[in-house]
């Protein structure tokens, strides 16, 4: 299977569905399928619950999570945080876990022009370096860890 938006026509359809509250579409990646409902992926990607402490470590790791290259957040010990994307402070109050999950898994569904990578995608990409070919940026378990951590950022 190719990526979630194989043709422009399908992409338009998917986006139209994605903004309808009752619309439910399936995102397909080689890594696994997930259900998009409105602007969220309500169901976790793994049976095991995410671990916030592991999630925090991934968010802060600039080689793994990559988050702080673009985002800032409530991490006073971290120097040189990015300013290209929304501050992660309070994200757990602004968004539900499902909304956070979609924004990590497939942010292009909400904003086609976004610089935020799709962390759970392997298809529809161009010239991926050999070391990363066929791999998602993070595993389903790592994404659940991050979702669990970000949900704790209430203020």
């Amino acid at each position: 299977m190719e990526g979630p938006c194989p043709t422009p026509a399908a992409a338009v359809l998917v986006a139209a569905l994605a903004v309808m509250p009752s619309g439910m579409v399936r995102g397909d990646t080689a890594a696994g399928a997930y259900a998009v409902v409105g602007d969220a992926v309500p169901a976790p990607l793994t049976a095991a619950p995410g671990d916030p402490a592991r999630g925090r470590a991934i968010v802060l790791n600039r080689q793994v999570g990559l988050c702080l290259l673009c985002h800032s957040g409530p991490f006073p010990e971290e120097r040189f945080q990015g300013e290209l994307a929304p501050d992660l402070r309070g994200v757990g109050a602004r968004l539900s876990e499902g909304q956070i999950r979609l924004r990590i898994v497939e942010p292009g569904r909400l904003n086609a022009a976004t610089i935020m990578p799709a962390y759970f995608r392997t298809g529809g990409l161009t010239r991926v370096a050999p070391a990363f070919r066929g791999k998602t940026v993070l595993t389903a378990g790592q994404i659940e860890d991050i979702v669990a951590f970000l949900a704790t950022l209430k203020d």
């Binding site: 938006c5 422009p8 338009v12 986006a15 903004v19 909400l110 904003n111 086609a112 022009a113 976004t114």
Partner: peptide, 10 residues
């Protein structure tokens, strides 16, 4: 981007 989503353009 918000306008694009509303209009269904991706």
């Amino acid at each position: 981007a918000a306008a694009c989503v509303v209009l269904g353009f991706t």
